[in-house]
Structures are given as C-alpha cells and as structure tokens.
Design a protein around this nucleic acid. Structure first.
Lengths: 203, 203, 203, 203
DNA sequence: GATGAATGAGCCTTCATTCAT
DNA sequence: AATGAATGAAGGCTCATTCAT
C-alpha cells in the first residue's frame, strides 16, 4: 500500500512534470476548479499514473508549497551573501512590490492558505515553511544589524521585526488580488515602503 | 427572472439568516466544501428557499463581502470621530493585531480572495469594497495630519501610506493562517508595529 | 378534499385566465419548461391560487386540449353549414396548409401528444377529442357525398377517408416542426393536395 | 473539453449501448422523465461514464435522431433497388400503415419533435435529417416516374409530392398516438391510401 | 511503469405543490 | 378568494479516485 522503495530518478522527473503542470493549472483555474484530468493532460501523462507519483490531489499542492518554500529560502540565502540587507532592499523596493503583488501568483497563494486552514496535511507544510522562513529571516536581520547591536535589543525585538516584515510582504500579495491594476500603485508605495524598511532593518 | 419588487422586511431578515449561516459554513468548511444543503440547514430553512432570496451560491458570498465592507467603513467612521488617529492606533495596537490575525475570520478572507481572482462578479464586489475603504482611509490619514501638513506632502504620499497601511493589516490576516498560535506573536510585534505606525501616520 | 360546489362565474373566468396564460407559456417554452410560477405571473395571479382552480399542472394541459377540441368541432360545424365540402377545401387549401404547419402551435401539439402517450388522464382527453372529431368528420364526408352515394360505398370507406384526412392534416403539423421555413412549401404542396382532396372527398 | 481523438471501437460499442438504453427509456418515460441514472442503469454502466461518451442528455437524443435518419435512408435505398416504387408501396400498404402508427415508436417521435422546437442543437439535427430524406424521396419519385415524364412536370411538382408523401406518413405516426387501438383502422385506411398513393406516385 | 475506462458519491439548482395567513 | 413564503424531492452533471490490462 505505502510506497516503500526510494523514488527513482525517472520518478522524480515525472513528479516534477506533474508539479509544474499542476502549478500552471492551479494558477489558471484555482485549486478546486483544476481537475486531475486537466493536470494529467498538461503534464502529458494519464490521470491514473499521477496516483503512482502522488497520494492524491492534496498531496500535489502540499508538494508545490514545499517547493515554493525552498525557493524563498534560496532567495534569502542570496540576500545573506549580498552584503548589507537594508541597502539591498532599498535598491530593489519597486521590484519587490511588483513581484509580490503579481495577481496570478497571488491568487494561488490565497487558495493555498484557504485550503491550509482546514486541511491538516497542508497546514503542516505551510506552517513548517513559515517557520523555516522566519528563522532564516531572523538570522538575516541579526546579521544585518551586527551581532553587538543585535544583542543589545530586547529579546523579542528581532522576532517582531521578522514577523512584521513577513506580514508586510504577504500584505502586498493580498493587495495584488484586492486591487489589481492601479497604475501608480508601486510608485506611490515605494517611498513609504523605504521608510518602513528603515524602521524594520536599521539598528 | 430576478425578483423585481423591493425585498420585504421579512425577506431581509431571512436573507440575513442565510448570510450568517453561510459565513459560518464557509469559515468552517471553505467556500467550495460548504454545500447549499449545509447552509440551508444551518440557516434553518430548505435549500430551495435560499434561491428565493439569492441568485445562487456566488451571490451569497458576494453579499457577505459587501456586508464586511460596510463593517469596515463603519469602523473607519468611528476612528474619524475618535480624534487623533495615531494616538488611537498606538493605544489599541495589540487588539488590532489580534483581531486581524484571528484564524477563522482570516480563513474566510483567503477563501474570498481566492474566489475573487476567478469569479468576475465577486471580483467586482471585492474591488469596489477595496476602493471605498481606500478612499476613506486616505481621508482619515489626511484629516489626521491636518490639512496644512497634508498639502505640503508629495501628491501620492497619502495614497502610498494608505496602501501600505492596508497591506500591513491584510498581512496580519495572512499571518493568522500561516502562523497560527505562536504565543508571543502579538507581544513581539506590537512595539515594532508602533514604530511603523509612526512612520505611516506622523506628519 | 374534492371540489363539490359548482364553479362560480368568477371562478370560470379565472380558470380561463389560467388556460390562456398556460397556452401562451407552453407554446413559448414547452410543457415541461414552463413553470407554474411563470404561468401564474402571466395569468396575473399567485401560484398558490392556481391550485384552487386546477388539480395540478397536468389538469391544465388536459383542459387546454379539451378546449382545442371544441374549437375544431366548431370549425367542422362551420364547414357543415358552408355547403359543398370539397369546394370549400379546394378554395382554402393554401390557408389550411399554412395554418396547420404553423410552428409554435405545432410544437405544442407534439408536446401534448408526447405527454398523452404516458399520462393516462391526458390520453383519455386526447382520445375522446379524437373520437368526437372523427365522428363529425365522417358525418361531414357522408353529407358531402350525398346520402345515396354514401350508402353505396363499402362500409369502412367513409371511416378510412376520415382517418386519412385527419392523418394528412396532422402530418402537416409534423412538417411544421421538421421543416420550418421552406419558402415554396405551401405553393408546391397545394396543387398536389387538391388532387388528394379530390380522392378523399369526391364520390 | 470535447474528446478530440477518434472514438475507439470499444467506445463506439459503449455509445451504442447508451443509445439503445436511452431510446428505450425515452419511449417508456419520455425525454424529460427519463433520468440519466435510469439510462445508465439500463445501459449497464455508471451515470458518470455516459459523460465520457456523450456531451450531455441532449446530445444523446440528437444521436438517436441521427441514427433514425440513417435507418430511413437505408429504407429508401432498398426501395430504390426494388424496382417500380408505386407497385412496391401498393403491395405493402398495410404493413406501412401499421409500422408508422406503432405507438411506442410514435411517442418517441413526438417527444423528439417537441424537444426539437426548442432545442437548437436538436433542431439542426432534425432538420438536416428531414432535408436528407426529402432529397432522397424526390430522387425516388423522379426515378419512379421515368426521366422523360418527370421533366415534363411543373418544377415544384416533385417537391410537392415528396412533401405530401412525407406528411402523410408522419400523419400516420400522429394517428398512432391520437387513436391507438382501433381494430379496423388499417383495413379501413388501406384502400383509400392506395388511391392516394396513385395520385402521388403515378405519372 | 503507464493507460484510460469506469465508478459513484455528491453538488447546485429547479419546481410542482402546500399551507399559514 | 387569494397570497407567496416555504418545502423537499429529484435531476443533470462533475470529478477524484480506482483497477484491469
């Protein structure tokens, strides 16, 4: 019943095909409206075979979230090697805003979160992902402040900054759905955002 | 097809029953998983009768969003009469955080947004709601700054502040789902949040 | 439970309103697609009240068929007083063709017949109507031939002619549905029809 | 959405199962009263699977009509090879009458026609079927008359004869519903019918 | 590994009919 | 006599999932 053997390389590649196809379908149609048949067709395989690679539909979206999480961690790692965090973010504020509020990606995020609030397995994945990201984010902030300065702050200060920074970016995603296509949005937000980033990242 | 006569008081009360029941079901199960039968049962009426009060299932969630919008506007109006905005928010930071990140309400919000990105009718309602709220929020910020100070700011400055403030609160909602039940969350965020609010609301 | 008192004049008029409205709705939408709500609205009364006047939806269509039958009998009676049958029909061949193949009426006829083949009550009405019409038609043919000539024919000859005449007109109705809007239809059929009528009605 | 690949032999056989089952159910209960569940059961498969073979319920009845049409065309082709048309018809008049007025088949015809007058897709199929049959019928009549004789007739004469012949047989079908089970019906009509056929098919 | 035919539970919606007023 | 709110059964259809091949 349960998969026992370790997945072969071939199986891994097939899994990735499904993940890519599913992400595309979910973005296009939403999690519920995308049918396994459609995903199978997009992935170039039969519906039945997907069940040799994934437990069920929920399992697919969980795997997508896990992969997204790794992307975010990789992103953070880049920052970590890029030197002064604050300067980097100030330099790419507009891009960051645009990227987070891109609507089709934002829609998928909402879908995932809605689903996570009542699907235990997905909730686990989402929360683990969140935990990992927060941990890294705190490390990044701490490093950016310098160890001395960081150690002089109140104990939860770094946590609070990381949480709020996360909230801010997630809020941009929500904005992407609630208010798509306002032309001056990015331009209006950027200067304000820069001041907020100062507050969150400066010593 | 649609009822043309203005709905009677009785019908209005019945509609409200359905809206309350539906909101509860959507929170509990999600929009797709909540069946009309379940909503009907919760509302204490037959499934068929719901269709005398609402066009269809989509119409129900649209009405819920409209009502939420009115609640938010009422909330903003209270602030408007409560005097200095910044002081009020600084005084209630913890409450605001807790309230926005309450998980069952947050789940419903995610559901609505996910649905809105693919359902034209709902999208219209969500976007109109967003527009109204933003308008009021800008008025509130302008009033809070004082007319002189406001007029001296760059043209999109107020817009940018309102957008970011909105994003921040929506981000708290997302946090409510991604990271439910971290005990020190509110305590850790509040001081940081207060500094951010200063940046967003001070002259 | 059962209606006991004889229907008042007012009730009779209300019944007629319903019959007219229902006939209109059935023609427009078909028997199944026309809802009692629509009929009620068209008749200018509430759905509930229709059930004070008719047993149920089937009862309405049965009453319509009965009324149609009376119309046909009246039509035959006119012919009976109009003198030579054959000459009358030859003079109005085109009209008769057009009238019988008019599509919206034809559609209703099909609906009724389809329904009659499995609704016992309606079947009774339809068959009684058919019997009455046939009887009158035979009388008409007999009268048209003259009693002497008629008496010299084989016993079932008149019956056969009446049946075939009926079939022919019903066939035009079917044609109205199977082949609506062929411009030259009437013109092409009329001369042939006249020759057939000669065969059916001449001594 | 729709299956693009050509249906396999297996699929074709399954389709036929459904068509046979549906025709039986429609005859027994009527188009509207026959449920997909009943059809599925009769066809020995699950309701869901029918939708792998047919677009929807309407599509099934359309396919039935198309098949009927082919049967009729095959019938006409037999006549075409059987030599003198008039003689053949005179020799089989009784059978033709009985066959056309067989009640359960007649009921299905009525149902189809009623439905066709309101369902665009079905209407197309019915009208195309009618057109094909008429074309063949005219060819048959023309051939039966001999080319010389046919060419000497007025231009719409053949069309008129074909239309009337069609009407006559369709009228028999209606008779099958309006007047089922009159014992002497066939015997009474046959001689009259033979004289009418002379008029329609003789030079 | 891979297919795709097949299942069947369950959903939204409609509508004839009833009944309290 | 008349209303129209309310019922609830039933229908067409979808789709995640299974399984014989």
């Amino acid at each position: 019943m349960t998969t026992s053997a370790p997945p072969s390389d071939r199986a891994l590649a097939r899994r990735q095909q499904v993940l890519d196809a599913a992400a595309e379908c979910f973005r296009r149609r939403g999690f519920h409206a995308a049918s396994m048949a459609e995903i199978a067709k997009t992935a170039g395989m039969s519906p039945g075979h997907i069940y040799n690679l994934f437990e069920n539909k929920d399992d697919i979206i969980a795997a997508i979230v896990e992969q997204d999480c790794e992307d975010v961690l990789a992103r953070i790692a880049e920052f970590q090697q890029g030197g002064a965090l604050l300067e980097q973010m100030l330099a790419h504020t507009e891009e960051a805003i645009d990227e987070h509020s891109e609507v089709s990606e934002a829609a998928l995020q909402m879908e995932v979160l809605a689903e996570a609030s009542r699907n235990a397995k997905l909730a686990t994945v989402v929360q683990r992902s969140e935990a990992l990201v927060h941990e890294k984010a705190q490390a990044l902030i701490r490093q950016s402040l310098g160890d001395e300065a960081a150690s002089r702050l109140p104990p939860d200060e770094i946590l609070g900054r990381a949480l709020l920074l996360g909230a801010l970016f997630n809020g941009l995603t929500v904005l992407g759905v609630r208010n798509p296509a306002m032309p001056q949005r990015t331009a209006a937000m950027a200067p304000v955002m820069r001041r907020v980033l100062q507050v969150l990242l400066a010593p």
